[in-house]
Design a protein around this nucleic acid. Structure first.
Lengths: 324, 324
DNA sequence: TAAGCTCTTGACAACGTTGTCTGCCCCCTC
DNA sequence: GAGGGGGCAGACAACGTTGTCAAGAGCTTA
């Protein structure tokens, strides 16, 4: 900038004004400055700008894994909103490890992100407190924060969705409905188990419940054990997209009714088509990002807790009747 | 930092030394400083640090769309390498628009990213030249840069993969093999068309070639037109994951041999399983990122052009014989 | 004609770090 | 006891911007 200034024969401040489109510069001078800028290939140093102005125009996003289609969709939606607001996105995957979640968040804060959207991996977020008191807005998506932290949240209707799935299977005549989900330490897994249990009522049988990491040997063993029972399940409710896929694979063509939580590409092309309770990751991302920018514009109201509806999509697998 | 210094009764520089783990500070003093840091909840301002030191410990990544599983996988791999090197990732999706690609890149450079990995959308990258001359390393992944730009590239063996796919179909007795791919303005689409054409030799028939955006009406029309021919195709080669999926959907159960470029989740669960030529997006991401960090460590050798092999995975659809 | 106003420009400090240089104290050695 | 060296600490400038304030030129108005 200094070089540009001397090349154009003006003061530093005038260049700054031109670069920022501030008024009060004579058109001819501005033109001279712009020519010098082009000639020297100058580009403003954002670090210095940030240092001086205190705002970074950067948003942080912590998710579990970009390679998971659900989070990829959420990520893309957040990115679009962020770019529309003239900001940039710093993102990182926690890999479901609380330690890495915290490291990422702290690195983001050290870089002075203006706001943060996160899908938490851990359940203790008291470490956010100093920064929250500092005024940095944080929005939790998909899962709520641990105890004692009061922030905006955007969650799906996990309980309602699970109830819908189970009700659908009950309507089609099933009485032995198994649940295959993730570790209940994960919020969404616990909520979906809760919905499953509530809707099943007296039909609940804990021998039909498996809560394991997807694609694990233990998950496969649980499934085999269930089918070895005297009264095996005639229908399955899988607790997330990953479990749906690994369960389908483990079934090896065995025809059992199935409803999965989370939609996934190609669910319609399998035979039978896979019925699912669909969330909309883009919607969640957009809502979370817009809420964040509303906070950044100064909305200081009490924290909001948005619950997005989910939708049952019948495609065949959930409508299979129980064997006679 | 100033506050920490006065709280601990030391000079600014001493705090700086402690924060950076520099030697030459008395243990007792360091301890006092650390206590003050904890008490005040101080965290270093990275912007100021960057301004002073000139390196941002930030890498930029421009891809086409995070929500596409291929790029999501690539993205995750890049992220892992970047984090391992103590850096952070700024990422953005170009959405296949050259304008947005350029905007993203320029924003990244304004933020003084230390290096850049990009999947280009446009074919003119002369705008990179000033920054390249400045010494910022750039690695192109998946697609090469436009003319006149000499940088490292990491590409898949697109021609070889297409030839493999076509050869596989020929081996299974097909002579009428159609190609359904993207606009040949996209490098990978053009390369795969080339491989297809080379391998087909005299069997090439331009009426069996469609190059359209996936999931477009025109793509569906082209497919219908091909099947209406007197000598319709008995096998299809689809030019990327998205085309494979939309083609499968358009086929509506019609049994035609098919090999797709790009692997995708659930390809094995469809009936028949979908044979594909698989690339490894994580591998590509990792290789690109490691190459970038090698450059950052000062490797100034001539630009490298890495071609990653691809692999044919037979799953059933590519082994269907032609109808008699 | 002097005062006042607008328009344009510039000088300067400050943002929070870190690199360089200097200074002090204490201990060791001759 | 004097000189030298190492360990520790601090003063100061600089990184590249932008906000604040002030000043000069040219014009209008009383």
């Amino acid at each position: 900038m200094k070089d540009v200034a001397s090349a154009a024969g003006v003061a530093l401040k005038t260049v700054s004004r031109v670069v920022n489109g501030e008024p009060g510069v004579h058109p001819a001078t501005a033109e001279r400055v712009r020519t010098a800028i082009d000639r020297l290939g100058y580009s403003r140093n954002e670090s210095a700008r940030v240092l001086r102005r205190g705002r970074t125009a950067t948003i942080g996003l912590v998710i579990e894994d970009v390679a998971d289609p659900f989070y990829a969709g959420l990520s893309r939606a957040v990115e679009d909103v962020v770019i529309d607001h003239g900001c940039l996105l710093l993102s990182g995957s926690s890999g479901e490890e609380p330690g890495r979640e915290r490291e990422l968040v702290e690195t983001f804060f050290a870089r002075r992100v203006d706001g943060l959207i996160m899908v938490p991996a851990g359940d203790d977020h008291t470490y956010l407190r100093p920064e929250l008191e500092n005024g940095t807005p944080v929005v939790f998506a998909d899962r709520p924060p641990g105890a004692g932290i009061d922030v905006d949240t955007v969650l799906a209707d996990n309980v309602g969705g699970a109830r819908q799935a189970v009700r659908h299977l009950l309507t089609h005549g099933h009485r032995r409905i198994a649940f295959l989900g993730d570790d209940p330490a994960i919020f969404t897994a616990a909520q979906r188990l809760r919905g499953y249990r509530e809707e099943l009522g007296g039909l609940y049988d804990e021998r039909l419940v498996s809560m394991r990491p997807p694609a694990s040997a233990s998950a496969r063993e649980d499934l085999a054990r269930m089918f070895a029972l005297d009264d095996p399940p005639t229908a399955l409710f899988t607790g997330n997209g990953r479990h749906t896929v690994t369960t389908l694979r483990a079934l090896e063509g065995r025809r059992v009714a199935l409803v999965g939580f989370d939609d996934f590409e190609l669910a319609d092309l399998l035979t039978p088509g896979v019925s699912v309770v669909a969330q909309d990751p883009s919607w969640m991302g957009r809502v979370a990002a817009e809420l964040l920018f509303r906070r950044l514009r100064g909305d200081g109201g009490p924290s909001e807790h948005i619950e997005l509806p989910v939708r049952l999509i019948p495609r065949g697998s959930g409508e299979l009747p129980p064997p006679d």
